[in-house]
Design a protein around this nucleic acid. Structure first.
Lengths: 133, 133
DNA sequence: CTCTGTGCAAAGCGTTTGCAAACGA
DNA sequence: TCGTTTGCAAACGCTTTGCACAGAG
């Protein structure tokens, strides 16, 4: 198990038991909605309130420890922030997976054709995953 | 001015004056939030209710006449559905613009490496536009 | 004429806030 | 100890719903 205490402190957040449980679940699941997270945290920490989940999600996102992935036609999922990457969303099973794609040539085009400096990418490719087809 | 009556009927929606005004504004602006749309429609049609805006946005999206663009850190904007394209979001002025990018090679990679068939792309590149830098 | 769309008010639902007590550093 | 976090309940804001009437086809 990773040192979530250290990771939280690195992002200027106190390591409370509630936050440690949240981190563990998000890291294990990879991507999770607020609802599902609340449900899963409650199993390990049954006094937690939904307000605490929201407050912590917000401060973790603000401190760039978590990243929100806005998904078409469904609720946002949250992931632990990592290097830039893209997402695949299966419309059948709703799974979200990370993929690495080389964007350098596209971003060169954007810079050249639109004189626009890209510093964030929110890229979701939807379709059908290998298990569902 | 385009024939919005025809476009609406093509998508199995009746051409009401409220919808015609909505279409004209969305088409002219390119991308617009619900709030801004309501505000602008009211100028031309002051009896319209927000509930009507919502009902129409929803039926237009359901019938694939409109497309919702989920934008990081701000409210969704709506655009008239067109061929697949990407979006640039300026973090400074919040403008959203359409761009064409050739995704064929990336999608070939996705298909080859992940055995995943892409049929929808939600791609937003954020940064600073030429006017804001 | 029929069925869909509109406007209003109320309800619904996800998210945020204020506050006192508990807790981490 | 001091500032942050928690849990609760209330408030909030956006979105949807039910219904009677109006309007498009």
């Amino acid at each position: 198990m990773k040192d979530y205490t250290y990771i939280l402190r690195e992002h200027h957040l106190k390591a409370t038991p509630q936050r440690l449980v949240m981190m563990d679940i998000i890291d294990t699941k990879g991507h999770i909605t607020i609802d599902k997270l609340y449900e899963m945290v409650k199993v390990k920490f049954n006094t937690i309130s939904l307000a605490t989940i929201y407050k912590n999600i917000n401060s973790m996102v603000d401190n760039k420890l978590l990243f929100e992935v806005k998904v078409p036609n469904q609720k946002s999922v949250y992931e632990i922030a990592k290097d830039p990457h893209s997402h695949l969303l299966c419309k059948s099973c709703s799974e979200v997976v990370d993929i690495d794609l080389d964007m350098s040539s596209l971003e060169k085009t954007i810079s050249a054709n639109h004189n626009f400096i890209v510093d964030q990418r929110d890229l979701v490719f939807s379709g059908t995953c290998q298990h569902c087809k």
